[in-house]
Design a protein around this nucleic acid. Structure first.
Length: 349
DNA sequence: TCCATTTGACCCCA
DNA sequence: TGGGGTCAAATGGA
């Protein structure tokens, strides 16, 4: 916790320095300055939130075992969990912190891929009563090996099909290797314009990590606006460290990022008879920058979130192949920043 | 062969 | 008792 807190503060300081450099009107755009300001505010906000979270984390630590707090990201596997009766397991899971994100996309958007930096495995999908779209259930890949209890649920909003609600439950107690959390800066450089991309990670395996993708036959561009204010600005969050359980966040892809070709993107056909009528998209949430790192797709990724169990290949959305390559130099020195971010993700997990 | 996804069945709780 | 959440066998892809 302390280390993470320090990281946040250090990051805020670094960003402030970068912002200072950007204050030169000839060297920077107003968008990038806004972006940096938001990042700085976010860092300090999270640092403050961490201080307020201490009590909660103690509570969680009591549930998961002492190691979950004293050494986040280390061996936090609760050996008793698997041996417990199902009732106890359910009780534990119920007490895990939970928070929700709403990921929205504007209609003219293209595909956005990425993930939150963690490896998720889908373990179920269910039709929810009263909901037009099924809910997908994911859990951390490291559940078996490290006992990480983090799960998430992804469901498309009924009221606005362009909004996905992602409910996270439990914090990651697993160790995400550096290969699994590549630096964001590498995303734009190492994964440019991939066709039907299969992105190899450190372990050499293809990884299907993105839970949402956005498909469109229109020009790619993602913009997210906060529901509360409608204000459009770069807003990234760290669901790994929720400010408070049950909080709802909206992830926004700023125009500035779009203009800077922020995302390396692949698109693929979206196949679903149930949702093809409205050209449904699937997109990946971007939590901080860690989300954007693993840009990949697979044939199954799209359907796993938003498709009906029985898919038909009559989607009006054709094979798409577009990309947005982010030039990290436009905004700041990403290598340093994202290495810190990766470290923080590892730590938080 | 390994791993991820699918999906029907089961369990728990309101 | 029904719905939400999870399990686990079957299946498929690399």
């Amino acid at each position: 916790m302390e280390e993470t807190l320090i990281n946040e503060l250090v990051q805020g300081m670094e960003l402030t320095k970068q912002l200072k450099n950007h204050l030169d009107p000839l060297a920077s755009s107003p968008e990038s300055c806004d972006f940096l300001i938001q990042k700085i505010l976010s860092s300090y906000d999270k640092a403050l939130s961490m201080l307020n979270l201490v009590g909660e984390l103690h509570q969680v630590a009591g549930i998961l075992g002492p190691s979950s707090q004293s050494s986040p990201g280390s061996e936090n596997f609760d050996p008793d969990l698997n041996d417990q009766c199902p009732r106890d397991v359910y009780k534990k899971r119920k007490t895990l912190p939970r928070w929700t994100e709403q990921v929205s996309v504007c209609s003219e958007t293209g595909l956005v891929t990425g993930d939150d930096g963690y490896n998720w495995r889908k373990y179920g999908q269910k039709d929810i009563l009263g909901a037009n779209f099924p809910r997908a259930y994911y859990r951390c890949t490291h559940r078996g090996t490290q006992g990480c209890l983090a799960t998430k649920q992804v469901q498309r909003s009924d009221t606005n099909p362009l909004i996905f609600e992602i409910t996270y439950r439990g914090r990651h107690t697993c160790i995400q290797t550096s290969q699994e959390i590549p630096a964001f800066a590498s995303a734009g450089k190492e994964i440019p314009n991939q066709n039907k991309g299969h992105h190899h990670l450190g372990d050499g395996r293809k990884r299907k990590a993105h839970e949402l993708e956005l498909l469109s036959d229109n020009e790619t561009g993602v913009r997210v606006k906060t529901e509360a204010t409608g204000e459009i600005f770069p807003s990234f969050s760290f669901p790994s460290m929720p400010i408070e359980p049950e909080s709802v966040e909206t992830i926004i892809f700023p125009d500035s990022l779009k203009e800077n070709n922020f995302f390396g993107i692949d698109a693929q056909e979206f196949l679903s008879p149930k949702y093809s009528e409205s050209n449904f998209f699937s997109l990946c949430p971007v939590e901080d920058f860690g989300y954007i790192e693993n840009l990949q797709n697979s044939d199954s990724d799209i359907t796993e979130i938003a498709s009906a169990p029985t898919s038909v290949t009559n989607s009006p959305i054709g094979n798409l192949d577009f990309s947005l390559d982010f030039d990290p130099n436009i905004l700041f020195d990403t290598s340093e920043f994202f290495s810190e971010t990766a470290e923080r993700f590892t730590y938080l997990s």
